[in-house]
């Protein structure tokens, strides 16, 4: 069997390969260099990244030495503990304003799941009898406002939208005023997808934030960066640049109902200290969960997603 065939075969055993890796790492006998290599490989294969993976393994190695641990069975749980620790140091619940409206702003690259997340977030409030209003600040993408409008109907919230091509900051302004005047509990601001490399679009986003902050003191209470769970190492750059530009307060990791594990979150939390706040696990309104560091860490090495949340 050629290498290529081998590769195909091993991949087709969907995600079983992670378990295999763990089994290899935990071969009977003492923990050896191969065990660490296997574990590092596993971390890389879930998008944790070479650097973060290396650091995690190094630390666990130290700890094993310090505590004279030789049982290979402990290795994986120590790694999981370490990952969970990285993720929990920054973990914080969503901020809620004492004086309504609470304002959540969603930002991120194209197609990451901002609009869907905006709807899911609002649904958390409206399903508890609170009132919400949406700002359709994606005035760029075709039918973006219509998409949010459909969601708003399902969620039971009002929506403020302008014409395609209009100034998103103007939509934010109107929405802020509507939220205040109509005494809404929550304002969710959906924005157009933008690559962090586009300077003018990042400036446009800054303007939206400025307008909201000016019209509603203390707002936005969360600026949530929505990152697709299948994203690779670019996720770290996205997090860094969006944070520099608008001061991201938390990350939403979406599409974790897929086969991707979202390991880039570990690098983001570890390197930037950004809290991961929510995870998206489907396309329904209920499919938004609070982030659980320990569960996430466990799921990184698990064969399938179901044991995540």
């Amino acid at each position: 069997m050629g290498l290529f065939e081998k590769l195909k075969a091993s991949l087709s055993k969907t995600s079983a390969f992670l378990r295999e890796g763990i089994d290899r790492a935990l071969r009977p006998g003492a923990i050896g260099p191969e065990s660490f290599e296997e574990i590092e490989a596993l971390l890389i294969q879930v998008d944790v990244g070479v650097k973060a993976a290396g650091e995690i393994v190094e630390e666990v190695k130290e700890r094993l030495k310090r505590e004279k641990i030789q049982d290979p069975g402990r290795l994986v749980s120590l790694i999981e503990e370490k990952v969970a620790a990285i993720l929990s140091t920054t973990s914080k619940p969503l901020r809620v304003s004492d004086s309504p409206p609470t304002v959540y702003l969603l930002v991120g690259v194209n197609g990451s799941g901002k609009t869907t997340t905006a709807a899911k977030l609002a649904y958390r409030w409206t399903s508890q009898g609170k009132t919400a209003i949406a700002a359709a600040c994606d005035t760029f993408r075709a039918a973006a406002a219509e998409q949010l409008e459909v969601w708003s109907r399902r969620v039971g919230m009002e929506i403020i939208k302008h014409q395609e091509g209009s100034d998103p900051a103007a939509v934010a302004f109107d929405a802020a005023h509507a939220a205040l005047a109509r005494r809404k509990d929550l304002l969710v601001v959906d924005t157009a997808g933008r690559l962090h490399t586009k300077k003018n679009l990042m400036e446009e986003l800054r303007k939206v934030v400025r307008v909201i902050a000016r019209e509603i003191p203390g707002a936005p209470h969360e600026i949530l960066l929505v990152i697709d769970g299948t994203t690779g190492q670019n996720g770290l750059i996205q997090a860094r640049v969006f944070t520099e530009a608008v001061g991201v307060t938390g990350v939403v990791l979406t599409k974790l109902d897929g086969s991707a594990k979202g390991g880039i979150a570990v690098a983001i939390a570890g390197e930037l200290g950004l809290p991961i706040k929510l995870v998206g696990v489907g396309e329904g309104l209920d499919d938004l969960k609070d982030f659980d560091p320990a569960g996430f860490a466990k799921a990184l090495f698990a064969g399938d997603r179901s044991d995540q949340v």
């Binding site: 991949l11 087709s12 197609g111 697709d228 299948t230 690779g232 670019n234 897929g258």
Partner: peptide, 18 residues
């Protein structure tokens, strides 16, 4: 395929192809 995709790209492509 999104150019920013990580390690899962392989599995995704393989399953769609299959």
């Amino acid at each position: 395929v999104d150019a920013m995709t990580g390690q899962e790209a392989c599995k995704v492509a393989q399953v769609f192809d299959e």
